[in-house]
Design a protein around this nucleic acid. Structure first.
Lengths: 186, 186
DNA sequence: AGCGAAACTTGTCAATGGCAAGATAGGATC
DNA sequence: GATCCTATCTTGCCATTGACAAGTTTCGCT
């Protein structure tokens, strides 16, 4: 990855995003530099700026790709709301770099077209799962949706922050299943 | 605050933490510099390092103070679990700088004695609220506690990230009340 | 009054983000 | 296949920053 025969990298944009995700996974969304990504990709220190403008540009691309992968993961979980919730948690823990960036809009440009399109799709997939929970009562349906979203998002974020004790094992989905079940199966 | 007659500041430690909280509230937990805090406090660029060592030291102090204020806020809510949950959300939204730092352990030193003491107290206050939910069944009580913690934490984090639509108004507690009610009143 | 420790300053260095200007390659058109 | 055009990438540069070292001022205690 460091050696490069020709002047042009070929797929620098993808390489930079991949390096960013790797660095964020290892050390968090703040503890990396554009120059480090450039070194990992084997290009000069100013090459990333051509594709992304600045750091926020890289993080915008990370967030957009994250929302796309997120929507894919939720879709693959099927129509069951409970399973969709567990897929939400599985994605967050398994792709923490994407997840953390996605829900920290101060890091990127929230009005980016690619980003908003990807997020809209993820929103639609989430909304689909809630639809039909309380037929005929839009207020109750809205509250049920927010409750489901909150509990899985909260569990995922608490797990990622290390707030949930380690004694419960290392499989967040197994721990979460009976916890969110309190809300979903009633 | 910029003028200072004597060589010694008098209460620099507190001033730096206050400036950090202010900066984090305005621009997030990453977008500030030690030198900026020093300028705000009217001291030289290296003065903060004497008290805190480095950036992580400042953030450790912010997290410790945050956990103390957090425990105070939860205690003041009384024994009702539902009201404690709403106090959790009220604190998170009203003191986002503290909240965001507290639940981002990569930013600070999680083994700091002052910090762990403050967090332990907050944990005890939270655990007290859950106690007695399912007498005689420790597993169920644990799951109930995690569910309650997850739903309020998730709602707060989603609200802070701007993921919850603005059409619902600007009072997170009013919006949250019927949402978390689905879990608490059953 | 004197002394040791704490608080703060000045000076410095490597690393970074971001910008400007230049070099190179790929591809379209003729 | 020659020419030009443009995207891609490089080199050079500057202000800012985090961190450290060494020196200076003040405080508090005896």
């Amino acid at each position: 990855m460091t050696e490069r025969p020709s002047y042009h990298h070929g797929d620098l944009r993808r390489a930079i995003v991949a390096a960013a995700v790797e660095a964020i996974t290892e050390r968090g969304p703040a503890d990396w530099s554009l120059r480090e990504l450039a070194r990992r990709a084997g290009v000069s220190h100013a090459a990333p700026a051509h594709h992304f403008g600045d750091k926020a540009g890289v993080l915008t691309a990370v967030a957009a790709e994250g929302y796309t992968r997120f929507a894919d993961a939720l879709e693959a979980a099927g129509d069951d709301l409970h399973e969709t919730g567990l897929a939400y948690i599985r994605f967050a823990v398994g792709h923490r770099a994407y997840f953390e960036v996605m829900f920290t809009p101060a890091l990127y440009r929230p009005d980016d077209p690619d980003l908003t399109a990807a997020r809209s799709r993820a929103d639609r997939v989430l909304a689909r799962g809630v639809h039909g929970v309380s037929p005929g009562d839009p207020g109750a349906e809205r509250n049920a949706g927010l409750a489901a979203w909150s509990i899985v998002h909260g569990f995922a974020h608490l797990w990622l922050s290390g707030a949930i004790a380690d004694e419960l094992g290392d499989d967040p989905v197994a721990v979460a299943r009976p916890v969110i079940g309190r809300l979903f199966e009633r």
